[in-house]
Design a protein around this nucleic acid. Structure first.
Lengths: 344, 344
DNA sequence: CTGAAAGCGCTTACAG
DNA sequence: CTGAAAGCGCTTACAG
């Protein structure tokens, strides 16, 4: 193992104290009135020796690590991969590096990861939580780790949270289906139904149909048996008391499971079935028919979440009346909701 | 800001030295013959006070941080998102947390990120590099940061590298196209043509056609203007000296750009065009026609890369004759390569 | 303008 | 069985 270059090495090579070197390298040369010449020699030596400060030492001293933890349910899910990328760019631009962790919607995993990261002294945590209430995470925050929720909230008086207009988006999809003449919706929800985003998407959707005195059929799909459950459900539609004429997939994975089931069973039987999805994917505008979907404002969500975190970190965050920030979504109307025939 | 619990706090609360507390908490109680009773009291106090060791301090002392850096070109690219997820699971299981960073195939960014991470004293680096040669990265490794390449190598005598059988996969696709009667291939490559994976996929493909005395047309697509370039190219196929009857997309983004161009221009004109892709995506088996693709052994690649890194970390890595490890790929034959009609 | 010294919270010989 | 002490590499009052 090679010995790394330290402040002392530079100090010796230049013939000054390491105090001076530290000051200069941290850009405080001016402020402390260190002569331009000395500064230059120090900087030159640092370059020469390829000095890179030991972050662990610096962190120990300053209490800051320049790291952020991002907890999502699954980094390989397209939505979170996109979110992670945007967040990474924001963070890197400010000199942070980010730990990205997947929780699989599992509170135990989530807590273990949060604990690990807070033990690593991350300067902040952004989490798409699977918790049912805010208690545990509030303790983390109150223990000194700035924390903001993303994509899901835990109530208006708890933690700062940045979410999409889930209820509104659900309603948009419902209204659009109604306008197209669909009257027998089947909602594909998730077994993790306590998660605010999932719950609100469904509520918004169901309420809108209710106004027209139409009741939605709801089926919750297992998070880990998604493809299997969806396949089963779609194969047995005739057993439902109301045979649906359209489907609402509550997230992108569900829509993909639906489409791949359609594919496997021969798409013809489903020609007339409307389909909408909460989450937009690149391939939704490639496939035939193209899929009507709600697009989330991922960029804006990341921006705001990062802002809030920054504010918590530097202590400038002022309490607002509500700390849930809801950002508008966009409805992308495509072919999957064009009614082919007026079937009673 | 809340004061965090330290070893000293525990020591005082139990009435022993912090040496003892440290020993016990690190599971060396037995080894140092500390009485069971004392151990229990220490552990109880640690629980009670919710003690979490300050990693920065520990790292400073031990030189280990328990962190790994993963550099890929873009975490929002499905292939890397998947790779990152698998790698994360392996790392987390061993108590590591991983920094995931995107380089955008940009060497400058890549070097900046690698420098940041090595300054954070990561225990190791796994990188899907955009470098043209191994020099710079070898310096990093020789500077004390264990490092293994993934997905791309930099020559057989340089750095440990785990890659897919890119040349072999390219050849498989070519052979399959030939068997299906395609004779005028257009290869969609990338402007980053120095990258080993891209180069080898194309070489393997081209060589196979060459055996049949067929020359491939090759066009390199800009990494940042992908959709635009592909659109342009496909709109002007008639200007090529040989009008192609099949396309080879060298990675998944290219294939998606092709499909979305087909879609935009009305897929009918392209009905007879064969299409193959290096990289498989979930939607390839949903879309119509389904897409023939080569599937990479992501799981195995991650496993091996992690293993090699671990070996470098604990110093047990022995030099092999070559340090490029090539893992077999799988050809998934689907509808996009079924010739509809024998056109001359 | 510059340096000696303390201290961040750990781990680990060393001494008893 | 247990504790005092050194030291990892920084930053930052403090003193001159």
């Amino acid at each position: 193992m090679v010995k790394r270059v330290t402040l002392d090495d530079i100090a010796q090579s230049v013939g000054v104290s390491k105090t001076l070197v530290s000051l200069v390298l941290n850009g405080k040369g001016q402020q402390y009135g260190i002569s331009k010449q000395t500064c230059d020699r120090v900087v030159a030596a640092a370059m020469e020796l390829d000095y890179r400060p030991n972050q662990a030492a610096r962190s120990l001293r300053t209490g800051k690590t320049g790291t952020i933890g991002l907890l999502v349910s699954d980094i390989s899910n397209v939505f979170y991969a996109q979110l992670a990328r945007i967040f990474e760019d924001l963070a890197t631009a400010k000199g942070y590096n980010v730990f990205i962790c997947s929780t699989d919607e599992n509170v135990v995993k989530e807590r273990r990861l949060a604990t690990m990261l807070s033990s690593r002294q991350v300067d902040g945590l952004v989490v798409s939580t699977s918790e049912r209430d805010a208690e545990w995470l509030m303790a983390v925050r109150d223990g000194g780790t700035p924390l903001v929720l993303i994509d899901r909230h835990l109530g208006p008086d708890a933690l700062d949270a940045v979410v999409a207009a889930n209820r509104g988006g659900g309603a948009m999809l419902a209204r659009h289906l109604l306008e197209q003449g669909f009257t027998r919706p089947l909602v594909l929800g998730l077994s993790t139904s306590h998660i605010s985003s999932v719950a609100e998407r469904i509520e918004g959707f169901v309420e809108e149909f209710k106004r027209e005195r139409i009741a939605c059929t709801l089926r919750n799909i297992g998070f880990n048996t998604l493809q299997y459950d969806v396949g089963n459900l779609l194969a047995n539609l005739q057993t439902l008391s109301v045979i649906p004429d359209c489907l609402f997939a509550v997230n992108n994975n569900l829509a993909t499971a639906v489409l791949s089931t359609f594919r496997a069973k021969g798409i013809k039987n489903f020609k007339k079935m409307g389909l909408v999805c909460f989450d937009d994917l690149p391939y939704f505008s490639i496939i035939k028919p193209t899929i009507t979907a709600v697009e989330q404002p991922v960029g804006e969500m990341c921006n705001l979440a990062f802002d809030l975190l920054q504010q918590q970190i530097d202590g400038s965050r002022v309490k607002a009346s509500s700390n849930i920030f809801e950002l508008p979504v966009k409805l992308n109307i495509r072919e999957s909701t064009q009614k082919k025939s007026k079937n009673k």
